[in-house]
Amino acid sequence: MLPTIQQVARDAGAKIMAIYATDFEHRTKDDASPVTEADEAAEAIIVPILEKLTPGVAVVAEEAATTGRIPDVGNGPFWLVDPLDGTKEFLKRNGEFTVNIALIENNAPVLGVVYLPALSCLYSGIVGKGAWRQDKDGPETAIAVRPEPADGLTVIGSRSHGDASEMEAFLAPRRIAETVSAGSSLKFCRVAEGAADVYPRLGRTMEWDVAAGHAVLAAAGGTVTLTDGTPFTYAKNPIFENPHFVAWGGVRP
């Protein structure tokens, strides 16, 4: 299925970029987060393809979910879709927004695609098989987390969601060499490819925000845990909201 998922992410990204080039507007949803026509147009491309590809497998997609259209995922596999993750970055026009598509089985991600349409950069992962990055029309290159650096960790945090003081307190026992920022699920991918070592998220997120990045990271040899070190799981019905979590590269949680 991976080539199909990669292609639909690219197709959604092309639509996003067409809107990005216009004088688009945005509105605020009930949860105070922004939404644009690009979010909705991308979701309208992705969801029908997934429904056709895997009949009977539920699709939980952000824009439908925020209007109350959330399917019952039961105990079976299901898709999680964030058609435009990092809408704040989209509005800032900094390029750090992504298309996120992930398949969940047994409450864990098993396949994920993260596409950065402004950068023509595609990250993919199949847990147990490997993770890859492809830039524009270049070759697909395997990626993996790096071992814990002897001189300290590179920590990556959110560009638009401030939780710096909590993050500093959480990481106090660790030796930190550098702290950097990025938008959207790109943070997971930077850990997955060894450009950073840990991504603590001590703020509100939803499952569709993180599942694809989690899949890429897990496929690259990393892990995602709650702040107490216990496993991070999915299908948290009915609203799919996440507790605080930490994404780890080659670092022991």
Rank of each mutant, 00 (worst) to 15 (best):
M1E: 08
A215P: 01
M167V: 13
A38S: 02
G162C: 12
T22Q: 12
P149Y: 03
I19Y: 00
D82Y: 01
V127N: 12
W132A: 00
H161C: 11
G86H: 03
D163G: 10
D137M: 12
V155L: 06
D39P: 03
L103F: 11
K129G: 08
V198R: 04
P253R: 01
D137Q: 14
D72R: 14
M167G: 10
A211D: 08
A12P: 14
M17P: 13
G213W: 00
V113E: 03
D151F: 10
H244V: 10
L91N: 00
I176H: 02
A164R: 03
R252H: 14
L186F: 04
G76R: 13
A169C: 05
G213C: 07
N107M: 13
T28W: 04
V251R: 03
P34Q: 02
S165H: 05
K52H: 10
Q6Y: 06
P147E: 11
W79F: 13
L122V: 09
V8E: 06
Q134R: 11
I156D: 14
F240I: 15
E25Y: 02
S181F: 09
E43I: 02
V57A: 08
T227H: 07
T227Q: 04
A164V: 14
E148C: 10
G221D: 11
L84T: 04
A169E: 08
N106G: 15
A172F: 12
L186Y: 05
A38Y: 00
I101F: 00
G222H: 10
T98F: 00
L103R: 12
V198Q: 04
K92W: 02
I239P: 13
F97A: 07
Q7L: 01
T66N: 05
I19A: 00
L119C: 13
G138S: 12
A58N: 13
W248E: 14
A21F: 01
V60L: 13
E140K: 15
V114K: 08
A61Y: 02
R10L: 14
A177V: 02
G183F: 07
R174I: 09
I156H: 04
L226W: 07
T22W: 05
A32W: 12
A65T: 15
D197M: 05
V180Q: 01
T36L: 03
L171E: 06
E96I: 07
V73L: 08
T66D: 01
C121E: 07
D31S: 11
I143H: 08
P77M: 12
P71W: 06
T54S: 13
V251Q: 13
E37Q: 07
G86V: 09
A108G: 09
P200L: 01
D30G: 10
D135V: 14
D151A: 14
V81L: 01
T36N: 01
V8I: 07
A196L: 02
T230Y: 12
N242P: 15
L53S: 02
V216C: 04
N237I: 15
P253N: 05
Q7F: 00
P77E: 15
F240E: 11
E43W: 00
E193Y: 09
K15Q: 08
H26K: 03
G68A: 10
G203L: 11
